[in-house]
Amino acid sequence: MSLEFPLPQGHAADGKPLRIAVLSHLHHPISSPFQGGLEMHTSLMADELASRGHEVTLFAKAGSVSAGRVVEVLPENFEFRRGLAPERMQRQQQALDAALGSAVAAVRDGGFDVVVNNSLSLLPYLLLADTPMLTILHTPPLPWIVDAVEDGRAPLSPLHRFVSVSARNATGWSPYLPDLHVVHNGIRLADWPAGTGRSTGTVVWAGRVTPEKGLHIAIDAARMAGMELHFAGPISDAKYFERTVAPHLGRGVQHVGHLDHRELAAFLGSGEVFIASPVWSEPFGLTALEAMACGTPVAALPLGAMPEIIDADAGRLAEGLGADALAAAVTDARRLDRDRVRKSAARFSASAMVDSYEEQMRSLLEPDGLPSGSALPAAGHPDAALVP
């Protein structure tokens, strides 16, 4: 299907500050303590862009905080819940769609140069086809987006560009999205100081407490390695927590709560080893990188983007998917030099990440920089452009 859209107009391709709209995922506020890596990324990216002089407007749930301007499109008392009855799930989704729809309408009327889409919604694909937009892919392929692209309900606009947070995650999306680039997530190393209060015999774990994060495997691995496990994060799946995690509490397993940014940095730096235990193909894994920045070596299950993040200086990948293999990785990781671990984390900087985003956005605003659709190689092809 051939589509024509007007080329972008204005000054924004010549190095001047951009007017940038950021569409966030609306399940949670963009504020510390962050519910997950997506919220953390959105906050960091918006603040970094604003610090560079761009005029950033973040469309988000009420309670969000940003160095840019915040436009609240959903009340803070809205609570996203899973496992509701079908009619209640439908009403909940309708409220989310209405909120994002209002954000999209404000974007269309706001005179923005470019949009950064972190929303996980189909609506920006449909309603902003004539607007330069950079979509950052934080998840494996989402069926409501893939299906709409494949059946023609959401034909891809030449004004849209896509980047994946890891090469592993890109492999799932590349059959559907042309000119797919990889821009790894980054952090500000200064926000994650080297730990000074290491607790001997303790491994740490952080993340949303849900089955796919594999906390139950981490608990077993820590015990097999003869160490205690302390974990931080929100209990996002109460049934999983009560059934699988709570019975272990108090026997070498401690929940320290849902920590804000500063508390989390101190916590991550306190462990001898950080365990990353995803039991799914996790698209990135920010907490592993944050632990590395604090000097804490990582022992990880070898799924998702873990092999892209963890090199021989930073940690050890388990040689299998069971707790015994992870325990062996914990034992090996304890021996690593913490200064070299921290140095390894410096490969993933927020500055480099946002440099790449800026390059992508400015190329969208240059008529000669627009992608040529199917003529360009997808991620995974030898000629594809992969941005480290």
Results as ranks from 00 to 15, higher is better:
residue 5 F to S: 03
residue 9 Q to R: 13
residue 15 G to F: 06
residue 19 R to K: 07
residue 19 R to W: 00
residue 23 L to V: 12
residue 27 H to F: 10
residue 32 S to V: 10
residue 36 G to Q: 06
residue 44 L to T: 14
residue 57 T to M: 09
residue 58 L to I: 10
residue 65 V to L: 12
residue 72 E to C: 07
residue 73 V to K: 02
residue 79 E to I: 10
residue 80 F to C: 00
residue 81 R to A: 09
residue 81 R to F: 00
residue 82 R to K: 08
residue 87 E to A: 12
residue 97 D to H: 05
residue 106 A to I: 04
residue 112 F to K: 01
residue 121 S to K: 10
residue 123 L to K: 10
residue 123 L to N: 07
residue 125 Y to T: 06
residue 125 Y to W: 14
residue 126 L to F: 04
residue 132 P to M: 08
residue 133 M to H: 02
residue 136 I to F: 00
residue 140 P to L: 11
residue 146 V to Y: 00
residue 150 E to Y: 04
residue 151 D to A: 03
residue 153 R to Y: 05
residue 153 R to N: 07
residue 155 P to E: 01
residue 158 P to A: 02
residue 160 H to D: 03
residue 162 F to I: 08
residue 169 N to K: 00
residue 172 G to C: 05
residue 174 S to V: 08
residue 178 P to S: 10
residue 182 V to N: 01
residue 189 L to K: 03
residue 191 D to K: 11
residue 194 A to P: 01
residue 203 V to S: 08
residue 205 W to M: 03
residue 210 T to A: 15
residue 222 A to W: 07
residue 225 A to S: 12
residue 235 I to W: 02
residue 240 Y to K: 11
residue 241 F to R: 03
residue 241 F to W: 14
residue 254 Q to G: 12
residue 254 Q to H: 15
residue 259 L to T: 06
residue 265 A to S: 14
residue 265 A to W: 09
residue 266 A to R: 14
residue 268 L to G: 05
residue 269 G to A: 09
residue 271 G to W: 09
residue 272 E to W: 13
residue 274 F to G: 08
residue 277 S to A: 13
residue 278 P to G: 06
residue 279 V to Q: 13
residue 279 V to H: 04
residue 281 S to G: 12
residue 283 P to Y: 02
residue 288 A to C: 14
residue 294 C to S: 13
residue 314 A to K: 07
residue 316 R to P: 06
residue 326 L to V: 08
residue 327 A to N: 06
residue 327 A to C: 05
residue 329 A to K: 06
residue 329 A to C: 12
residue 333 A to D: 08
residue 335 R to Y: 01
residue 343 K to R: 15
residue 344 S to A: 15
residue 346 A to I: 01
residue 347 R to S: 04
residue 352 A to E: 08
residue 357 Y to P: 01
residue 357 Y to F: 14
residue 359 E to N: 13
residue 360 Q to H: 13
residue 360 Q to V: 14
residue 360 Q to M: 15
residue 362 R to W: 10
residue 362 R to C: 10
residue 362 R to V: 12
residue 367 P to C: 11
residue 370 L to E: 07
residue 371 P to R: 14
residue 373 G to V: 10
residue 374 S to N: 15
residue 378 A to W: 09
residue 379 A to Q: 05
residue 380 G to V: 08
residue 383 D to T: 02
residue 386 L to T: 15
